[in-house]
Protein backbone atom coordinates (compact mmCIF):
# COMPACT_ATOMS: atom_id res chain seq x y z
CA UNK A 1 0.00 0.00 0.00
CA UNK A 2 2.93 2.24 0.65
CA UNK A 3 4.05 1.66 -2.96
CA UNK A 4 0.67 2.77 -4.22
CA UNK A 5 1.03 6.20 -2.64
CA UNK A 6 4.43 6.77 -4.22
CA UNK A 7 3.19 5.59 -7.63
CA UNK A 8 0.19 7.93 -7.56
CA UNK A 9 2.39 10.86 -6.51
CA UNK A 10 4.92 10.07 -9.26
CA UNK A 11 2.28 9.89 -12.01
CA UNK A 12 0.54 13.08 -10.85
CA UNK A 13 3.80 15.00 -10.66
CA UNK A 14 4.84 13.86 -14.13
CA UNK A 15 1.52 14.85 -15.69
CA UNK A 16 1.48 18.18 -13.92
CA UNK A 17 5.01 19.17 -14.89
CA UNK A 18 4.67 18.17 -18.53
CA UNK A 19 1.33 19.92 -18.97
CA UNK A 20 2.63 23.11 -17.39
CA UNK A 21 5.50 23.29 -19.88
CA UNK A 22 3.11 22.73 -22.77
CA UNK A 23 0.84 25.62 -21.79
CA UNK A 24 3.73 27.99 -21.22
CA UNK A 25 5.01 27.36 -24.72
CA UNK A 26 1.80 28.37 -26.43
CA UNK A 27 1.22 31.73 -24.76
CA UNK A 28 2.70 34.20 -27.21
CA UNK A 29 1.45 33.13 -30.63
CA UNK A 30 0.03 36.48 -31.79
CA UNK A 31 0.86 37.40 -35.39
CA UNK A 32 2.20 35.82 -38.55
CA UNK A 33 3.21 36.62 -42.09
CA UNK A 34 0.41 35.89 -44.49
CA UNK A 35 2.26 36.39 -47.76
CA UNK A 36 5.63 37.41 -49.15
CA UNK A 37 6.89 37.94 -52.69
CA UNK A 38 9.04 40.10 -54.92
CA UNK A 39 9.08 41.93 -58.24
CA UNK A 40 12.26 42.18 -60.25
CA UNK A 41 12.72 45.37 -62.27
CA UNK A 42 14.11 45.67 -65.78
CA UNK A 43 16.25 48.72 -66.51
CA UNK A 44 16.83 50.38 -69.88
CA UNK A 45 17.59 53.60 -71.71
CA UNK A 46 15.61 55.30 -74.47
CA UNK A 47 16.85 58.38 -76.30
CA UNK A 48 14.39 60.47 -78.28
CA UNK A 49 16.16 62.26 -81.09
CA UNK A 50 13.91 61.87 -84.13
CA UNK A 51 12.70 65.18 -85.45
CA UNK A 52 9.21 63.78 -85.84
CA UNK A 53 9.07 63.09 -82.10
CA UNK A 54 10.05 66.62 -81.07
CA UNK A 55 7.97 69.77 -81.24
CA UNK A 56 9.39 73.14 -80.30
CA UNK A 57 8.91 76.81 -80.93
CA UNK A 58 9.27 80.15 -79.24
CA UNK A 59 6.88 83.03 -78.87
CA UNK A 60 7.60 86.77 -78.93
CA UNK A 61 5.86 89.40 -76.94
CA UNK A 62 6.90 91.99 -79.51
CA UNK A 63 5.16 89.99 -82.26
CA UNK A 64 2.22 88.51 -80.40
CA UNK A 65 0.53 86.91 -83.39
CA UNK A 66 3.64 85.48 -85.06
CA UNK A 67 4.46 81.77 -84.99
CA UNK A 68 8.13 80.73 -85.02
CA UNK A 69 7.90 76.95 -84.98
CA UNK A 70 9.61 76.53 -88.33
CA UNK A 71 12.80 78.34 -87.32
CA UNK A 72 16.04 76.52 -86.52
CA UNK A 73 16.49 78.42 -83.25
CA UNK A 74 14.45 79.11 -80.14
CA UNK A 75 15.14 82.29 -78.21
CA UNK A 76 14.61 83.07 -74.54
CA UNK A 77 14.62 86.66 -73.37
CA UNK A 78 13.56 88.46 -70.22
CA UNK A 79 13.22 92.06 -71.37
CA UNK A 80 9.92 93.66 -70.51
CA UNK A 81 7.81 94.17 -73.63
CA UNK A 82 10.19 91.91 -75.56
CA UNK A 83 9.94 88.70 -73.60
CA UNK A 84 10.52 85.51 -75.52
CA UNK A 85 9.59 82.05 -74.27
CA UNK A 86 10.63 78.66 -75.59
CA UNK A 87 8.25 75.70 -75.74
CA UNK A 88 9.33 72.10 -76.28
CA UNK A 89 7.80 68.67 -75.96
CA UNK A 90 8.74 65.08 -76.81
CA UNK A 91 6.69 62.16 -78.05
CA UNK A 92 8.05 59.16 -76.14
CA UNK A 93 5.78 56.57 -77.76
CA UNK A 94 8.75 55.18 -79.70
CA UNK A 95 10.19 54.02 -76.36
CA UNK A 96 7.18 51.70 -75.97
CA UNK A 97 7.25 51.93 -72.19
CA UNK A 98 4.38 50.31 -70.28
CA UNK A 99 2.32 52.53 -68.02
CA UNK A 100 3.42 50.41 -65.07
CA UNK A 101 6.99 51.51 -65.70
CA UNK A 102 8.67 54.71 -64.66
CA UNK A 103 11.59 57.03 -65.25
CA UNK A 104 14.61 56.57 -63.04
CA UNK A 105 16.07 59.70 -64.60
CA UNK A 106 15.07 61.79 -67.59
CA UNK A 107 17.28 64.48 -69.04
CA UNK A 108 16.47 66.98 -71.76
CA UNK A 109 19.54 68.08 -73.65
CA UNK A 110 19.64 71.47 -75.29
CA UNK A 111 22.46 72.89 -77.38
CA UNK A 112 23.28 76.57 -76.90
CA UNK A 113 23.67 78.32 -80.22
CA UNK A 114 24.32 81.77 -78.85
CA UNK A 115 24.84 82.20 -75.12
CA UNK A 116 24.02 85.35 -73.20
CA UNK A 117 26.88 87.56 -72.09
CA UNK A 118 26.01 86.67 -68.52
CA UNK A 119 25.13 83.31 -67.01
CA UNK A 120 21.33 83.01 -67.02
CA UNK A 121 19.02 80.99 -64.82
CA UNK A 122 16.12 79.63 -66.82
CA UNK A 123 12.90 78.22 -65.38
CA UNK A 124 11.24 75.10 -66.80
CA UNK A 125 7.50 74.83 -66.15
CA UNK A 126 5.17 72.05 -67.34
CA UNK A 127 2.51 72.99 -69.87
CA UNK A 128 -0.85 71.44 -69.07
CA UNK A 129 -2.77 72.16 -72.25
CA UNK A 130 -2.16 71.41 -75.89
CA UNK A 131 -0.07 73.53 -78.26
CA UNK A 132 1.91 73.04 -81.47
CA UNK A 133 4.45 74.79 -83.66
CA UNK A 134 1.96 77.46 -84.69
CA UNK A 135 1.77 78.80 -81.15
CA UNK A 136 1.89 82.59 -80.78
CA UNK A 137 2.50 84.88 -77.83
CA UNK A 138 -1.18 85.68 -77.50
CA UNK A 139 -2.13 82.00 -77.59
CA UNK A 140 0.54 81.17 -75.03
CA UNK A 141 -1.18 83.47 -72.55
CA UNK A 142 -4.24 81.23 -72.68
CA UNK A 143 -2.40 77.98 -71.97
CA UNK A 144 -2.41 76.37 -68.55
CA UNK A 145 0.87 75.86 -66.74
CA UNK A 146 1.95 73.85 -63.75
CA UNK A 147 1.74 75.67 -60.44
CA UNK A 148 5.33 74.73 -59.66
CA UNK A 149 8.41 74.75 -61.83
CA UNK A 150 9.91 71.41 -62.76
CA UNK A 151 13.42 72.75 -62.43
CA UNK A 152 15.74 75.64 -63.12
CA UNK A 153 19.06 75.50 -64.86
CA UNK A 154 21.88 77.83 -65.74
CA UNK A 155 23.01 78.52 -69.26
CA UNK A 156 26.67 79.34 -68.88
CA UNK A 157 28.20 81.63 -71.45
CA UNK A 158 29.65 79.14 -73.92
CA UNK A 159 28.32 78.87 -77.43
CA UNK A 160 27.82 75.30 -78.57
CA UNK A 161 27.54 73.90 -75.04
CA UNK A 162 25.12 71.05 -74.47
CA UNK A 163 23.04 71.66 -71.35
CA UNK A 164 21.43 68.82 -69.41
CA UNK A 165 18.08 69.68 -67.89
CA UNK A 166 16.54 67.18 -65.43
CA UNK A 167 12.87 66.53 -66.16
CA UNK A 168 12.49 63.18 -64.41
CA UNK A 169 9.31 63.94 -62.50
CA UNK A 170 7.39 64.99 -65.60
CA UNK A 171 8.60 62.13 -67.80
CA UNK A 172 7.79 59.66 -65.04
CA UNK A 173 4.26 61.08 -65.00
CA UNK A 174 4.12 61.00 -68.79
CA UNK A 175 5.01 57.31 -68.86
CA UNK A 176 2.10 56.61 -66.53
CA UNK A 177 -0.28 58.88 -68.46
CA UNK A 178 0.82 59.15 -72.10
CA UNK A 179 -2.03 61.47 -73.03
CA UNK A 180 -0.55 64.35 -71.03
CA UNK A 181 2.29 65.11 -73.40
CA UNK A 182 2.43 68.88 -73.47
CA UNK A 183 6.05 69.49 -72.61
CA UNK A 184 7.49 72.59 -71.03
CA UNK A 185 7.80 76.33 -71.26
CA UNK A 186 11.28 77.72 -70.65
CA UNK A 187 11.57 81.33 -69.56
CA UNK A 188 14.12 83.76 -68.18
CA UNK A 189 12.77 85.61 -65.17
CA UNK A 190 16.04 87.36 -64.44
CA UNK A 191 17.35 90.82 -65.05
CA UNK A 192 16.58 92.43 -68.37
CA UNK A 193 19.18 93.38 -70.92
CA UNK A 194 19.50 92.79 -74.61
CA UNK A 195 22.80 91.07 -73.83
CA UNK A 196 20.97 88.46 -71.78
CA UNK A 197 19.26 86.66 -74.63
CA UNK A 198 19.84 82.90 -74.86
CA UNK A 199 19.41 81.11 -78.18
CA UNK A 200 19.09 77.33 -78.44
CA UNK A 201 19.12 75.14 -81.50
CA UNK A 202 15.63 73.88 -82.29
CA UNK A 203 14.47 70.61 -83.82
CA UNK A 204 14.87 72.24 -87.26
CA UNK A 205 18.64 72.43 -86.69
CA UNK A 206 21.01 69.68 -87.83
CA UNK A 207 20.60 66.24 -86.28
CA UNK A 208 23.64 66.51 -84.04
CA UNK A 209 22.61 69.76 -82.42
CA UNK A 210 18.86 69.46 -82.06
CA UNK A 211 17.21 68.85 -78.66
CA UNK A 212 16.98 65.31 -77.35
CA UNK A 213 15.54 63.47 -74.39
CA UNK A 214 17.36 60.65 -72.59
CA UNK A 215 15.21 58.41 -70.40
CA UNK A 216 16.66 55.85 -68.04
CA UNK A 217 13.65 53.76 -67.16
CA UNK A 218 12.46 50.75 -65.26
CA UNK A 219 9.69 48.35 -66.11
Amino acid sequence: MRYWKWIVVLVAATIGASTAVGFAASLNVGSWHLWGGSQTLTKGTCTVTAAAAITDTYVRESSPTTASGSLSTAIIRADSGQREWMFIRFDISSCALPQTGGADTATMKLVVKNAANNNRTLTVTPVLTSWDGTLTWNQAQALSYGSAATTTFTTGTTNGATLSVPVTVDIDALIKNPSASYGWRIVDNGSTSSANTTTFNSVEASAGSRPQLVINYET
Partner: peptide
Protein backbone atom coordinates in the same frame (compact mmCIF):
# COMPACT_ATOMS: atom_id res chain seq x y z
CA UNK B 1 13.58 44.82 -57.17
CA UNK B 2 10.74 45.25 -54.74
CA UNK B 3 10.12 42.82 -51.91
CA UNK B 4 6.62 42.61 -50.48
CA UNK B 5 5.17 41.17 -47.34
CA UNK B 6 1.59 41.24 -46.15
CA UNK B 7 1.30 40.77 -42.42
CA UNK B 8 -1.82 40.05 -40.44
CA UNK B 9 -2.54 39.67 -36.78
Amino acid sequence: SYSFSVVGS
